[in-house]
Design a protein around this nucleic acid. Structure first.
Lengths: 138, 138
DNA sequence: CTTTGTGCAAACGATTTGCAGGATG
DNA sequence: CATCCTGCAAATCGTTTGCACAAAG
């Protein structure tokens, strides 16, 4: 779960992206954390010590990273998008008390069979959100 | 799938809600349709012939209806909430082309086993969103 | 050097809120 | 008639956009 600067740079270049300090920092930050921060949280975290990236830049970088498939947006709460760089198949647990999101490895849930969907629907992917209460909140 | 005015009124009263023309119209409208309209779409539909409810009223009514468990918000797209009054367990198919949402009866998907979740997480419910292309869009 | 990215501020769209008047039980 | 609801407008919040300047390859 640790990534070197070279690996990160390589990933970005492999997708045809210019490597800027801002993009690097944003992607590296997402890779380094397991929570699923909002843009606001990324902004704070990144600029904690000294300014690295502006709000607008974070938004546009995330959009680009999303387009090339390096990050994903997660929609579990109304109003805010949350992001992560975990691209392997997995699901989400969403604590209804504190709002935390935890990844559920796909191995922990039996795969869903889509065979009984009515003909005509061409499924491409699916996501599962489990809602409940996490340990800290009980 | 058809509901009489009395049934609707009864449902609202059973939840301890005052029955106003606006609430009645909003809830009845949601019960009568299978798509999952946004607030904007509800506004247009409801006020087509003559004014029934304002934007603010629709928002507040939906919030109340949601709180008492008569309607649900569906989060499949960034930025907008969509609503429906189908409260039995079911899942969603979301067409990535036209954006349509179609209900998938729970019988069509084998139930998920949550037993392998790590201890500490107390699951209460889950929802599944299948993404793909619907027949109209192929 | 050409192309693409950054940052600021203004613009936007969805949702919320404050408040005065109106309707419900 | 006390309480709760409605509608308007203003306020808020997340996100997007236009544009001048700066940096990347």
């Amino acid at each position: 779960m640790d990534y070197s600067a070279e690996e990160i740079t390589k990933s970005l270049k492999a997708k045809g992206l210019r490597v800027t300090p801002q993009r690097f920092a944003i992607y590296a930050n997402l890779l380094s954390r397991a929570d699923h921060p909002t843009v606001e949280q990324l902004l704070e975290d990144l600029n904690q010590d000294f300014p690295i990236a502006s709000l607008a830049t974070i938004y546009s970088s995330l959009q680009v990273l999303k387009e090339v498939g390096l990050v994903q947006a997660v929609l579990v709460e109304e109003g805010v998008a949350r992001y992560h760089a975990q691209m392997e198949t997995h699901y989400h647990f969403h604590c209804s008390v504190c709002g935390a999101i935890e990844d559920i490895p796909s191995g922990q849930l039996a795969p869903i069979s889509l065979k009984q969907l009515r003909p005509g629907l061409k499924p491409e992917s699916y996501d599962i959100t489990i809602r409940g209460v996490c340990d800290r909140c009980q």
